[in-house]
Computed example of a mutant assay.
Amino acid sequence: MISKFLSLETEKRERMLNAAMKEFAEKGFAHASTNEIVKEANISKGLLFHYFRNKKDLFLFLYDYVLELLMNELVEKMDVTEKDLVNRLRQWAQLKMDLIKKHPDMFQFILAAQREEAPEVKHELERKNKDIIAKGYAVLFEDIDTSRFKEGIDIQRAIQMMIWTLEGFSAQEQQKVKSLSLRPDYYDEVLAETEKYLDLFTTCFYR
């Protein structure tokens, strides 16, 4: 069924996905209405359930679809010729912010999904998040040059500290953000704060 859905004409497919993203982002999984989704998409309910067995299938497909699209775009734009880890992290942060600005509706949906507590989907989302994080790190840390690290530094532990720090900072910001309708300079402030952590990594771990 999913392959048939993906073969739909682009305009109709995008209408359905955008309507579902909007409904799930605004109301969460439990309160989202397939009636509202088909109304917004201007399609019949029968057509929606021709491709998706139920609301859960639609929600989880949409989460996979959006995550894959964003991750592929991010990876495509990564300059993998940059071997320095801190510069890779700097590039990753900038690209992520660029994607948020380019696809605010998608990130609004992702943000809502990551806060989702509905038991029908919560464990599936947690598993999917682990998978996508692992995929991202595989790209981020592939073939990096560790020669700039200070002698005697446990490089793997230093990298783990970097990960924990940036993940903690990201989680802290996500707790603050209830909506992506933010003042324009918010993203610049987040990047500036990220830069401070990157500078600290350079001071602590590099020659």
Rank of each mutant, 00 (worst) to 15 (best):
E117W: 00
R90P: 01
V139F: 11
E120D: 14
I163W: 01
D98Y: 01
K96Q: 13
K102G: 06
P104E: 12
L95H: 00
N87V: 00
E120K: 08
L95D: 02
E142K: 15
G136A: 07
K150A: 10
Q114C: 08
I153C: 03
L89H: 00
L125A: 08
A171R: 14
E142H: 15
E126F: 11
I153Y: 02
A138W: 00
E167H: 07
I133L: 12
G152N: 06
L99P: 01
S170R: 09
L95Y: 02
A158I: 12
T146N: 10
I110Q: 13
I144C: 05
M161F: 07
L89K: 02
L166F: 10
D145W: 12
K101S: 04
R148C: 02
D145K: 09
S170Q: 11
A171L: 14
V121H: 08
I100S: 06
L140K: 02
E126V: 14
D145R: 08
K135H: 04
G152T: 02
F107C: 02
F141V: 04
L140N: 07
I163Y: 02
E151G: 05
T165S: 12
L95C: 05
L111S: 13
K96Y: 13
D105Q: 14
K83P: 01
N87M: 10
K102I: 11
N87E: 13
K96L: 11
P104H: 09
D84A: 05
Q91V: 00
K150M: 08
Q160E: 03
R90S: 04
D98E: 15
I163V: 09
I100D: 03
N129G: 10
W164M: 08
W92Q: 07
A112Y: 07
A134V: 01
E173M: 15
E126N: 15
E142Q: 14
T146G: 01
D143V: 03
L85I: 15
R115Q: 13
H103Y: 15
E167N: 09
D98M: 03
N87H: 09
D143C: 05
K83D: 03
N87L: 11
F107I: 05
P119Q: 08
K135S: 05
N129R: 14
I163M: 07
H103G: 05
P119V: 05
Q160V: 00
Q172C: 10
R115F: 13
K135W: 00
D98N: 04
A134P: 00
S147P: 07
F169W: 07
P119R: 03
